[in-house]
Amino acid sequence: MDKIVVNKLDLFYGDQQALNNIGIAMKERSVTALIGPSGCGKSTFLRTLNRMQDLIPSVKIMGQVKIDGQDIYAAGTDVVLLRKKVGMVFQNPNPFPKSVFENVAYGPRIHGETDKKKLSEIVETSLKDAALWNEVKDRLHESALGLSGGQQQRLCIARLLAVGPEILLMDEPTSALDPISTMKIEELISELKDKYTIIIVTHNMHQASRVSDRTAFFLSGDLIEEDVTSVLFTRPAKKKTEDYISGRFG
């Protein structure tokens, strides 16, 4: 079933058009990779899916983004509920300057959970799901800023899972990490795929082919081509896609 359906999506920064008539559908419990050169609009597109792009002044968005059949840009959409359902992992790990426990408990707390026992349970399962529990279980009450970069990124994923999302948006989640941490995050993504719909922006085409089911290629605000990952990388339909994946530019 299609979890996300995007239709004729245009986005402007002031007068400048950054996304041009985007149309794409994403299936439930699948991984979609967004690739393309810097400034092609892939991150911008990702951030329209949880309306984080709204935070930037002078942004104008037209078209339709439907999640579970609901247009998230329709008047009366509760952005808080939307972002609870559509979580986001950022390029640079951004844990709060709080303890490991408080980082993960933050989401449930703001959504009204006060029961200590329940919070501990949520923190434990979320950290386990993010494959971080064994590394931090003895230092839950130490500062999260003392963790390594890779651990911090998995902590951010745990913090996100604790809110109970259905869709995970990942904006180049490994670009600031070393190869081993990257590998751990990629393994994590293939495990999370069983429960979540994942959309990942990546600069790294190998990463896209390793983790994703489908890949979408963006160029200058246009969605050039979208297909099953193995097909897009071996038999692209468009010349521009072929030029990009064969390394002729970008």
Partner: peptide
């Protein structure tokens, strides 16, 4: 990034 993280988790 702290603000973004918090807002993206659905905080007001």
């Amino acid at each position: 990034s702290y603000r973004e993280a918090s807002l993206a988790l659905g905080a007001t």
